[in-house]
Write a protein that binds this DNA or RNA. Structure first.
Lengths: 126, 126
DNA sequence: GGTTGACATGGAGTATACTCCAGGCGATAA
DNA sequence: TTATCGCCTGGAGTATACTCCATGTCAACC
């Protein structure tokens, strides 16, 4: 008794809309899942895990094309390819994080400024 | 003798394309710069600073609409509004950074896996 | 005086990533 | 039995952010 999920259950668990899930399948990011006799999609826990990993990649700004490349390598058992794609993305993430901490610093400075400006304006008003 | 920049100089200094700069002006993200007598745009060092700050916001995934909101507040001298927009974006960045470090962890794990898999495949081959 | 080059404009086109819709089907509930 | 529900498909539509193009002007250089 293997546990399977309907598309709406997968949607709930991943936070991706049903349309998005079907869209990913359409553009080939994931192989078509097994279908029940009535034609409905049936997702395994393995499928769920793959979708969850994809959402991690997506939330770190990996383009769908790159995600697709990764999945294709994986399906071809080209683990060297998988490694390359992931490694590049890792570097991208590290660069993004560096930019974000720089931005954070500048924003903290600006936020302080605005705080004083607001205080000044309130002072004048009263 | 105030130093000014042409649009191509601004483009070089910010990394934004000339078309992008004009596009930002068109959608109102920045007020139109001063024009020379012949109609060409002339940017001041203040304009340059504003553009650079915008590129920081953009590289941390702030949507143009939000950047626009921020600039509008700034021009209305609504510093409370500026504060709110920036503060929200700051929280977004912090969330993104948290997601990125999570993703990094998972990726490091996967990268290790792929490394062993590649080693195994090479071992078999030889 | 002609050509080149940097700039100008308005508008069309592109890439990415969805999101929505019309029309249809099969199982369950009233 | 009929209505509803969840799912199906193909295709159109939308949002965001550019990017490109045709056409035109103006100043400078040869």
């Amino acid at each position: 008794m293997e546990l399977t999920l309907t598309i709406s259950e997968l949607s709930e668990k991943t936070g991706l809309s049903i349309d998005t899930i079907r869209y990913y399948e359409k553009i080939g990011i994931l192989p078509s899942p097994h279908r029940k006799s009535n034609g409905r999609r049936e997702y395994t826990s393995g499928d769920l895990e793959r979708f969850i990993f994809i959402t991690h990649l997506k939330r770190t700004q990996m383009p769908l094309k790159e995600i697709d490349r990764y999945i294709q390598f994986y399906m071809d058992q080209d683990y060297e390819g998988c490694y390359q794609v992931l490694h590049k993305h890792k570097e991208d993430i590290e660069m993004q994080m560096a930019e974000m901490s720089m931005a954070l610093e500048k924003m903290n400075y600006k936020l302080d400024n605005f705080k004083s400006l607001v205080a000044d304006q309130n002072g004048k008003r009263s």
